[in-house]
Design a protein around this nucleic acid. Structure first.
Lengths: 152, 152
DNA sequence: CCCGATGGGTTGCGGATTGAAACCATCATG
DNA sequence: CATGATGGTTTCAATCCGCAACCCATCGGG
């Protein structure tokens, strides 16, 4: 079970110093973020997640357990009755910005002009505007104006 | 080759209407976003990507080709000499916000207090502050104050 | 011209992961 | 008591991945 490469000696992480890599180790597969997406949009039950994502049931079982193990989801018995429900933790809800940027990138680059897609709207039905990363001084930043400083 | 599920009948997309799902279809695996991360931080050559990520060489070959096929990367001959280089396209550079939110989530939730990690800094060496998603009126939005409106 | 290093891959293999479908147990309802 | 929903588990085939080995072209010395 202890996957050990020359790059992650015994830590379990692909790249222990990099927060991007750690996040991808937790949710960087084809399905986990879609489960989180649907949880944010109101899905709570096993069946509901399965219906919305189309994921195979055994894989869904596995993903739900992993998300629970990593603290993104909690499983509890529904207040009314005997049903299970899966609810996002604070950490899980905090993935909102990740899902949002994935959504906005997809809207810009994964649809042909004229193709329709679902949209994220606020309580008044107004679409959520694009996120623009800003530096400490408020100026926009991008890949060219930033770089990674390695862990001390 | 034509992967056809009950949920993506012949379209090739896991969920054709959802921009999140489309983005994940393009870069939602363990390695693609790490390649993009390193490309943003200056990696250009096959060997450099392999060294930084630790990805297996055959998989790196596959991922580079897919990123090229999806228009996130271009392969060209380096200006000086005969070497190849892989450079981000505009679409690829536009993944900056995605990588940034993954990084910031990881910093908040994937490190124990006191653990060190690499940091994204701007040209003055100042760390890039956390992104906060805002609605059209400037107020912060989150999973509870938004919802998905399905494609018309 | 020969040698080794470097860059950019390809190939083969075994083990891990995935998807589809079938099966199962527990309730609730009619 | 038959039926259906819920929340799984099991099985099996197909795919994917990591690793190591191999290949080939170029370049820089000696």
């Amino acid at each position: 079970m202890s996957r050990t490469t020359a790059y992650a000696p015994n830590s379990g992480w692909t790249d222990p110093d990099c927060p991007v890599a750690r996040t991808l180790d937790l949710v960087g597969d084809r399905w986990s973020l879609l489960v989180v997406r649907d949880a944010m949009d109101g899905a709570r039950s096993f069946t509901e997640f399965q219906r919305r994502t189309g994921i195979a049931r055994n894989i869904l079982t596995d993903r739900l357990r992993k998300l629970i193990a990593h603290g993104l989801l909690v499983q509890r018995t529904a207040p009314s009755g005997r049903r299970q429900e899966y609810v996002l933790t604070d950490a899980g809800r905090d993935l909102f910005a990740v899902i949002l940027t994935l959504r906005q990138w997809g809207e810009r680059h994964a649809f042909d002009p004229g193709e329709t897609h679902s949209t994220l709207v606020d309580q008044h039905g107004t679409p959520v505007p694009d996120i623009a990363p800003a530096g400490a001084d408020g100026a926009l930043v991008d890949a060219d104006s930033t770089h990674v400083r390695r862990a001390s």
